[in-house]
Structure formats: structure tokens, C-alpha cells
Design a protein around this nucleic acid. Structure first.
Ligand SMILES: [Mn+2]
Ligand SMILES: [Mn+2]
Ligand SMILES: [Zn+2]
Ligand SMILES: [Zn+2]
Lengths: 138, 138
DNA sequence: TACTAAATGAGAATGATTCTCTTCTAAGAC
DNA sequence: GTCTTAGAAGAGAATCATTCTCATTTAGTA
């Protein structure tokens, strides 16, 4: 996604288009490993040496609010950001900090069918997310 | 689980038995909602008014190390503690801070079977945990 | 070009968690 | 029961990711 496409995405959400916002969304798409705010700042500083840390956090929040991103919790409590705004699963590498997306409609249907039949007592399911830990083969 | 049973559990793990440790493990079992460190401290202060916050964190870490507890990440990055040391799933209430355990062997088998057949390219699965969000019916 | 609500930058504040260091104590040896 | 000592607890400072405040700048609109 280039800068023009990113700008269009922001406009479509009724958000103002700023150089900082374009850079931050571009960084997340480029970095492609559910980056932390710090990862993003480090990456952006090359072209935006004066960007403020507070701005990065505020922009990230506004993206989450506007469903351009989702937050991802990790061990250690540092927040990471996910450019896939729809529901999907994650593979967590045990040895490294890599988090990869896992999408699988067949599996989703299997699980949804199971819960439609069985249900959970006193609970209405809104969303199911798998947190798959393991190791990537190199 | 009474104090003697908790003390035995600590001894069995080769850990020293202290009044603080007994109180903290007792609190987590009693509170029964995957409490935060703060929840635990508040609860314990009744009988242990001089307990130090640092001690609570250190004790919790030692419990996690010794597989008496597991950590649970939540929205907002505040850590919570789980008295079930084996793998299980969680129900997250959208409206409140309640987290309930969900165990379901049939579901686990369904999912394990699925992945045994299909696998994930370049990834060895170690563990699968469901993060089920929704609403509790009151 | 001028206007204004919204966004940014700089730095202070926050707050959960960790660290440091001194004092205390649980558990084994005698 | 007393001694010994590694390990645990207490007090408070430090850390650090994130949030807040407020003065300045800017995007979008007229
Ligand atoms: Mn790896
Ligand atoms: Mn509820
Ligand atoms: Zn993702
Ligand atoms: Zn649990």
C-alpha cells in the first residue's frame, strides 16, 4: 500500500491526513511483525526525526478506534499493533518475538459449529480467538 | 484448600513456607477471578497489614516459576494470576473485568485432531489456547 | 487567504512492576 | 533447643511503557 492509498484509507474513515499518520500506518504494514510502538518510532525516525512519542501513541489509538488496526497483547505486557482489522488467529513463537497471523475458515467453521451445538452455560459468545504457541521451523 | 494444604503444596515444590506465601496463594484461590496483584494485596492487608508490594510480586513470580500459577494477560496490560496451572481456555466478559475458566476436552480433541491432519506450514504447535470474548448472562 | 477544530511536539506525570539493599526468618545441622 | 545461613521479606527508589498537559502548528473547509 503506497502513501496515496494510505491517505485514501484515512479519508474514507473521516480522519485527517497527516504526514505522521501516513508514516505510522506505512511503518506497521512494512514492519509486518505486529510491531511495538517503539519498533514503529525507530523505523519512522529515519524520515521523521522530530516525531513525538506521544503522537505515535495517540495516532495508534486513533487507528484502533477507527478499526484500521487492532492491539495485540503479549508476554511482558508491551502492546503490539496488528494491521489486520478483522478477526483472526495468531502464532506465537516460543523462542523469538515473532507473531504471525493465522487465518483458517474451515477451522473457524468447525469451532463455531461446535459451540452452536454445545453453547456455554450463562455466556453469549461474541468472538473466539486462538492463541497458538510453538516454534517456527527455520 | 486450607493453610496446611497450601503449606504442603509449597514444600512439595521445595519452596520455603512463609506466612506471606500462604496468604498470597490463599488469596488467589479465594478471590477466584484471576486477580491482579493489587486485588491480592488489598485482600491480604486485612490479615497482613505490613506486607510489602515488592514481596507480593516476588512471591507471585516464584509461584509462576514453580507452576503453582499462570499469568494471564488482559486488555490494558495489567497482569492477572490464574490458580489453574494446566492448560485451559478463558471466557472474557466484554462489560466487566470477569475472566472465567473454560475446560472442554471434547473441544480440545476436535482442535488437536484438526491440526494433526492439517498442520501449520513451518510451525510446530506446542499449545493452543482459546480466548473467548462475550457476555455473561446475569 | 483566513478560520478553526483537530493534530502535533515537548516534556512532565502516571502507575504497574522491578530493583537494591538492609533486616529478618525458615529450615536444616548439631 | 540453639546455631547457622541461604533465602525471603520490607522499604523505598528506580524503571519504563504509556498517558497527560498545554502551547504551537496544520489540515481541511469556506
Ligand atoms: Mn522462530
Ligand atoms: Mn458479566
Ligand atoms: Zn494479526
Ligand atoms: Zn484460568
Amino acid at each position: 500500500m503506497n502513501q496515496v492509498e494510505i491517505a485514501e484509507k484515512l479519508s474514507a474513515k473521516g480522519m485527517r491526513v497527516t504526514p505522521q499518520r501516513i508514516a505510522i500506518l506505512g511503518a506497521i504494514l512494512k514492519l509486518n511483525n505486529h510491531p511495538t510502538a517503539e519498533n514503529i518510532i525507530e523505523y519512522i525516525k529515519i524520515n521523521h526525526p522530530n516525531i513525538s512519542i506521544g503522537t505515535v501513541y495517540k495516532v495508534l489509538d486513533s487507528f484502533v478506534e477507527n478499526h484500521l488496526l487492532k492491539k495485540v497483547k503479549t508476554e511482558g505486557g508491551i502492546m503490539r499493533y496488528d494491521p489486520l482489522p478483522f478477526n483472526h488467529h495468531h502464532l506465537y513463537c516460543e523462542e523469538t518475538d515473532r507473531i504471525e497471523d493465522y487465518e483458517d475458515q474451515t477451522l473457524d467453521e468447525l469451532i463455531i459449529d461446535y459451540f452452536e451445538k454445545k453453547g456455554i452455560k450463562n455466556f453469549t459468545i461474541q468472538n473466539i480467538q486462538l492463541h497458538i504457541t510453538g516454534k517456527f521451523k527455520h
